[in-house]
Design a binder for these strands. Structure first.
Lengths: 203, 203
DNA sequence: TTTTTGACCAATTTCTTTAAAAGTTCGAAA
DNA sequence: TTTCGAACTTTTAAAGAAATTGGTCAAAAA
């Protein structure tokens, strides 16, 4: 029955994702996830050792979603600016739809529980690789000159991250998920920043 | 005795500044400030209506310190990059020395009490003016081309702000004053960012 | 044997109450 | 007009109780 078992495992992941994406880790209970599926609470512990590992599994799915979608968009883009814009908007769309799954990555509200962090793939590292990919393409096509690609990618990413935080602070909205308007405003400024930034790397 | 009165007012401001800079608003009591001066607690209320207004006065002094010092450095600098570097390092030095006075401006730890905020001069607005000044100089000397100077200044500043927050988050040090090493690391990355950014605005 | 569950336990969080501390006021004195 | 001690009020902190929730287990179902 491994097939059936896998199916149930996936059902749990899906239900957990819905809850976590909407309510976050702390405000989601194992009992609620079980109720959504009409499973018993104990069954969740048959498939996942504890709540944090379940959350980590959901998180990993969401990270993959970001990485896969942005990678594809970068691949089919024609120049550096197009790639950056596609990266930014695709990334922000996924974040928007699953905001509370990223409550520890993209918000400063709470800090990541230690045992989750240990299991987690580093989203930030992966994003640096994505931006590095963009920069590398730019260097290959002679669009850009970059001496330390990884460091440059890191600087840009950390600026973009901070830009969101700075804006949300301005809106005094550091604890609630951003509204659609706030997301759009953030994306707009992020695009402007990366445009100037990329321009600063041109040959 | 207005002269004498002013002298005492200044003494209170100085003592308060020492306390606030070191311990922050919440962890400084009116009794402590009074004790430092061997005044009675009630006397503080003769010169300042309440604790928040005293804090606001101290904050305003610190803001002036930043603005005055950076303005002078910008004035004597020879090109845009030198101006930006001077602005960044001078600014960060003042912040470092008075970190807890800026606990509501440059950190996300706590939010500003509403009645303080109402009285406060907008530090962020003033900093935008400083950066705008730098950009304007660059445009005048034909170093740069900038269409919307204020917006561009805001984008740069918000990125720099976020850079610090992003770095401190990486260090898991969002609640303690940064160490000297952390400040140096932040300053280094901020300079790199603004260098690329300025380069992106060149003619 | 593998999967599922209800009942149970232990850890955490939340709420309530209380005591202490800190902000603020006031009348009198210098 | 300036200063202070004492009193008052509000806020914060501590402690304990109650409720919620994460996690376990032996037994039943498949």
């Amino acid at each position: 029955m491994a097939k059936n078992a896998d199916a149930k495992r996936i059902k749990i992941l899906e239900a957990a994702k819905r809850r976590f994406a909407h309510y976050g880790l702390a405000k989601t209970t194992m009992a609620e996830i079980a109720q959504d599926l009409s499973f018993s609470k104990a069954l969740l512990y048959y498939y996942f050792p504890d709540k944090n590992r379940l959350y980590a599994a959901v998180f990993e799915m969401a990270v993959d979603e970001i990485i896969n979608e942005t990678t594809e968009k970068i691949r089919i883009s024609k120049d550096v600016n197009e790639a950056m814009e596609a990266f930014l908007s695709t990334r922000l769309t996924v974040i928007k739809e699953n905001f509370n799954i990223f409550e520890f990555s993209y918000s400063l509200r709470n800090e990541m529980p230690a045992d989750i962090e240990a299991v987690l793939p580093s989203l930030f590292e992966k994003e640096i690789q994505q931006v590095s990919l963009i920069l590398k393409k730019g260097v290959e096509t002679k669009e850009l000159v970059v001496d330390d690609i990884e460091l440059t990618a890191k600087i840009l990413l950390i600026s973009l991250l901070g830009m969101r935080i700075g804006i949300l602070q301005e809106f005094k909205n550091l604890f609630l998920p951003p509204t659609k308007e706030e997301f759009d405003y953030i994306l707009g400024l992020q695009k402007k920043l990366s445009h100037i930034f990329i321009n600063g790397l041109r040959t």
